[in-house]
Write a protein that binds this DNA or RNA. Sequence first.
DNA 1: TTGTACGCGTTATCAA
DNA 2: TTGATAACGCGTACAA
Lengths: 340, 340
Amino acid sequence: MDGRDASVPGGVTIYEVARRAGVSIATVSRALRGTGPVAADTREKVLRAVEELRFTPSRAGVSLAEGRHAANGIVFPNLSGPYFAEVLIGYEEVTSELGRSVVILSTKGREPVRDLVRELAGRVDGLAVFGSTVPGDVVGELVASSLPLVLISHAPRPGAVTLRSENSEAARALAIHLRGHGHRRFVFLGAPYATGDDVDERWQGVRAVLGDAVEPVATAEYTVESGYQAALALLGGAGRPEAVICSDDEVALGVILAAERLGLSVPHDVAVTGWDDIMAARHARPGLTTVRQPMRELGAQAARALDRLIDGAGLERSHRTLGTELVVRDSCGPHPPGGQ
Amino acid sequence: MDGRDASVPGGVTIYEVARRAGVSIATVSRALRGTGPVAADTREKVLRAVEELRFTPSRAGVSLAEGRHAANGIVFPNLSGPYFAEVLIGYEEVTSELGRSVVILSTKGREPVRDLVRELAGRVDGLAVFGSTVPGDVVGELVASSLPLVLISHAPRPGAVTLRSENSEAARALAIHLRGHGHRRFVFLGAPYATGDDVDERWQGVRAVLGDAVEPVATAEYTVESGYQAALALLGGAGRPEAVICSDDEVALGVILAAERLGLSVPHDVAVTGWDDIMAARHARPGLTTVRQPMRELGAQAARALDRLIDGAGLERSHRTLGTELVVRDSCGPHPPGGQ
DNA sequence: TTGTACGCGTTATCAA
DNA sequence: TTGATAACGCGTACAA
């Protein structure tokens, strides 16, 4: 028993197993994969040799011969907040269940994104890409290529399978709820970066209801820190809005922190809402009113769609929208006890 | 221009590029990799053909020829909390910078972990594995194999490179600080699962200072929810401890929630401390006293150590401990204004 | 400066 | 039931 591994460099090969078992490599392959007939005692010999040599087929050899990598990739901007991590959890779980490995790529602050994506594309059978993580032309290149592709949180796009959570209706419902609290002057904090992305849909939905009563204000990023900084300016000066509708929960948590810092009460002095329903939204004080988005399910469905695409099970529905749910807690305004 | 990709199945091959450019595959390879001499105009022709055909070398072919995967793996239990995600961020960043892809594997709730790890091991040049994610015999198998291996948050182990944050001293410092607040009856919530893991070191350090004054209490998991449930029982009954020292921040946040639910004030009625200094620790109310652990750095150093191991730059220090820092906020007890 | 040809580790076809 | 052997796509001595 020598402790060599079957990794590419200097690993045990199928030839050594074959020699040790006194058979040909074809027989070893058949015995291991269960393809084709193998006599019971022959199989025994082979399995023994495999065990003694600790043989694992070289993945590169298998990939080359099989014509597939048995791996899928996923591209996201970063993993700092809960959102992408949650989606990744769902994606990894399903992909792994389907017998494929998961290769990740974070694009945040990295330069030739095109090269990185190409490199990744070359080692997987399919790719899931978050909207807004990759320049449009690179997406175009991917779409043009024959590589199975799913775009997460992305608007419908011809030639690609897209997937996202519902934004517009939930945004309307949220705006209506806030107006019901009697708020009149709103700010949408975390203004959208790109037309058609998730945040843009939320903004459009909110504006459709509130019209000129809501003003968009940008943040540097969709993070707690950015929300905090933006809110210090927003809430500290004159003309403080009555309600701050945030692009997402992290920004909203930053606003709550800023309000506390400024000695303002949420929701009495200012109402705050988020989006996503990350875990901290429930734990925040006051509890954060938000829109729940099925983050893991988003990743899981992306993985399943990709699998179907790879297995070429016909053309599948090219766009899918997952349901969301308004979660009313205490940050949006006072509710009568026993009510909603 | 035909939109075929260079993925394994049916991709454009180097032969087609060579034919189109009117050269041999050797020249194409040289032109692309910069190995060996190529005439300027020849290179032009090759690059043009590459662009027109959208050629990307098949990763499987390259891996087989080069004898390396240009990919590293990482094994963790799950990605639910910030801890593993943060370490992963550091790991991915450095690994990517070093020109390698990152393949992830989550073991939580998955069954033949040994098979999954073997599968992963077969497609990477090196592996980072969190302590306690993989059965001991599987770790043994990995150590015995020739695959470069780094164990994160793991005790020193002959034959493997290990890496962890400092626990014992910080735990002592924390315990001493708490005793300084006048607390006398302690619970360590989130009792260790395994001897020698991070939490065990924390527990040992705390007990070394507090002796019989501290009692270990287990939680189902190291999560907010588990901490919450455990704390409901712990704080709701008789004999409530004066201070709850938690295995990590998430459990501690659960305790704070439970205290609030029970109408108890932190730190007045009960002091609470965590470990890790995740972002929510700062945002919690009261601010959570904790021990800061350099999570990203842990991942980054694991990646670098693995790289050195792979490039065979001699035997490197086989165990490394990263510094931690006691972060005193308000959850551990009242501090004089202007103090600490 | 360029091309031929072999090797990398598998899978799978086709004879035997 | 088994064994030669031809792909698979690429890198690279070695020869030209």
